[in-house]
């Protein structure tokens, strides 16, 4: 049952990306183009998502544990180290170049645009390198 709900969550997330316009790199690039053809739509995506998540998380976290796992597994790091700036800075450059972040890129796989089929394998390779480097360091 837990796995079915996780599949459903992924499906809902992807449909949200499609409905919101986040799955269209042209719209993302225009959101980032403050000095040009600016399209503020994505600020509304973020506002809607953060508002619902904030309320919903509060409700869920008031329970002793999740429905299908022994305990909540939340990110525990609080230190502001170099990685929390360097990683997002690098990610943002890539995001600005193609208009794809990981969620929309994966959701776009099935639509099979040639650019997506180049982007996603490269993204997975980049993830593998970062994961390998961080595991070597700890």
């Amino acid at each position: 049952m837990g796995i079915v709900l996780q599949l459903l969550a992924g499906l809902l997330f992807g449909i949200g990306l499609v409905v919101s316009g986040m799955a269209d790199p042209a719209k993302v690039m225009n959101f980032l183009d403050l000095a040009g053809t600016w399209d503020p739509s994505l600020a509304f995506v973020m506002a809607g998502a953060v508002a619902v998540t904030m309320g919903g998380y509060r409700l869920v976290l008031s329970r002793p544990r999740p429905f299908f796992a022994p305990a909540f597994d939340l990110p525990g790091k609080t230190a502001l180290d170099a990685r929390i700036v360097i990683g997002p800075a690098v990610f943002g450059i890539g995001w600005g170049l193609a208009g794809f972040c990981p969620g929309p890129a994966l959701t776009s796989l099935g639509l099979a645009a040639p650019g997506t089929l180049m982007f996603v394998p490269a993204m997975i390779a980049g993830m593998a390198v970062a994961r390998w480097l961080s595991m070597r360091n700890v």
Binding site: I93, G94, F100, F119
Partner: peptide, 15 residues
């Protein structure tokens, strides 16, 4: 597209 993918993948996991 390949460069952007590498940067997005690396940066998101690193951060």
């Amino acid at each position: 597209m390949v460069l952007a993918g590498l940067l997005v993948g690396f940066g998101s996991v690193w951060g």
